[in-house]
Simulated scan of single mutants.
Amino acid sequence: MFLGPYTIPIIIVFVASMLIQGYLSRTYKKWGQVRNARGLTGADVARMMLDDNGLHDVKIIAVPGNLTDHYDPGKKTVNLSQSVHSVASVGAMAVAAHEVGHALQDRVRMPALVLRGKMAVPLSLGMNLAPWLLLAGILLRLSGLLWLGVVLFGAALLFHVVTLPVEFDASRRALVYLDSRGLNGTVEGQNGARNVLTAAALTYVAGFAMALVQFLNILGIARSNN
């Protein structure tokens, strides 16, 4: 990481992000061990929610890892991790419903979801180049390269800005569906599902905060070297 005027805020946000990740892990571990009221696995809930919304062509796939769950709009698949796909817990139910929430967004072509999908691949490539462009711009005193790196960091910030409403909306759709179908069961189940999704949402807020302070830091470096 380049040292700049926002180095200390970056360290603070990084530590906060680690704490939030720990909170998410603890929260999911807790509710991942509490059986949901209907005894439905994550895959069962996902299939039910997809079918109730007419998305019979969307497949559910088990993927390795822990909390590696995601929706693939290209392949039209809801990918559920091992701790979600075949487990009948409150946590698994909440995560599965959240991923189906993305499938519902895809069905209506939610603008933010579409934009995020178009940005993902080129942004990934650009962010691999950004640090080298910044370093070359500073060492060679080439302001063009330096500011190109700034633009790429700005694009990363935009990606996180777009991601926030996408993730929040998916969680909202998940909770509305679980409540409407009575899948949460007790008040405890409702609180558990909400706690899991809130913890997950905090990780995206932390990601946005990190992208913001990194962008401001790089912008400060660019200005001082201009």
Rank of each mutant, 00 (worst) to 15 (best):
F2R: 12
P5I: 03
P5H: 07
Y6L: 14
T7H: 05
I11P: 00
L19D: 02
I20K: 00
L24V: 12
Y28F: 14
G32K: 00
R35D: 08
R35N: 08
A46G: 08
M49P: 06
D51H: 13
G54T: 09
H56L: 13
K59F: 03
A62K: 14
V63L: 02
G74N: 05
K75I: 00
K76E: 15
T77G: 04
T77M: 13
V78W: 03
N79Y: 02
Q82C: 00
H85Q: 04
A88M: 05
M93S: 01
A94E: 10
V95Q: 09
A97F: 04
E99V: 01
E99R: 00
H102C: 03
Q105W: 02
D106W: 02
V108S: 12
V108F: 05
M110P: 07
A112H: 05
L115N: 02
A120D: 08
P122A: 03
L125M: 11
L129V: 14
A136W: 12
G137E: 09
I138N: 02
V150F: 01
V150W: 03
L152T: 13
L152K: 05
A155F: 11
A156I: 01
L157K: 01
L157N: 05
F159T: 05
V161S: 09
P165K: 09
D169W: 00
D169S: 11
S171R: 06
R173E: 06
L175Q: 14
V176R: 15
L178W: 05
R181V: 03
L183Q: 09
E188S: 12
G189F: 00
R194K: 12
R194Y: 03
L197D: 07
T198D: 08
A200S: 07
T203W: 01
T203D: 04
A206Q: 09
F208K: 07
L212M: 15
F215T: 15
F215P: 13
F215L: 11
N217K: 06
N217D: 15
I218V: 15
G220T: 13
G220F: 08
N226R: 10
N226S: 15
